[in-house]
């Protein structure tokens, strides 16, 4: 049986939801969301440094989604929009959680998992060194990224991140990443 994305989305939508979205992830959408959330965070959060951290994590999460979503080959049944992704921002007590979800081709799981585990196991100084090393040596990828998004978020949140890969079919899985600010 397929992994049930609707059920998963409703589960994500529990607790104190600040913003939730399910659908096509485009550049325009990101612009709109960032504008809306900027105003909302201004009202919600008193401490400016937390607001900035959350906003930064949000930018990187949304742009990671934008750059790395894999499209299911056949969306003609209309179930999923092109460039389909999910993101939800919730408040859990004093913390904020940014969750994203997207399809990923199964062969990409292991490399991504390795990368996430490596980043999660690094100390703050190691992350800082790795960040600088990549910044100084890497060229832009074809997608226009530099492969720094995950490292940047881990650095800012002191590695407060969790992930999950849910099997969807022989070719695709649904990748979920939670980042706590």
């Amino acid at each position: 049986m397929h992994f049930d994305i609707d059920q998963y989305y409703s589960r994500m939508n529990s607790g104190e939801v600040i913003l939730a979205y399910k659908g096509s992830i485009s550049s325009e959408l990101i612009t709109n969301v960032l504008e809306v959330i900027d105003a909302k965070l201004e009202d919600l959060i008193i401490k400016k440094s937390i607001k900035k951290k959350l906003y930064n994590v949000l930018v990187e999460s949304l742009q990671n989604l934008y750059h790395h979503i894999d499209d299911l080959p056949d969306t003609s049944d209309g179930k999923f929009d092109v460039h389909f992704g999910i993101f939800v921002i919730t408040r859990e007590g004093e913390r904020y959680k940014v969750s994203t979800g997207n399809f990923i081709r199964n062969e990409k799981i292991q490399p991504l998992k390795d990368r996430l585990d490596r980043v999660k196991a690094m100390t703050k100084d190691e992350l800082k060194d790795l960040y600088k090393q990549i910044l100084n040596n890497q060229d832009f990828t074809q997608k226009g990224g530099v492969g720094l998004g995950l490292i940047d978020m881990a650095k800012r949140t002191d590695r407060q991140m969790a992930y999950q890969f849910n099997h969807y079919n022989e070719e695709y899985s649904f990748f979920n990443l939670d980042i706590y600010v």
């Binding site: 900035k52 906003y55 930064n56 930018v59 990187e60 742009q63 910044l135 890497q138 832009f140 226009g144 990224g145 530099v146 720094l148 998004g149 940047d152």
Partner: peptide, 10 residues
């Protein structure tokens, strides 16, 4: 700068 993303950092 108030904010910059990793794409801009390069």
């Amino acid at each position: 700068l108030e904010y910059f993303n990793t794409s801009s950092s390069k």
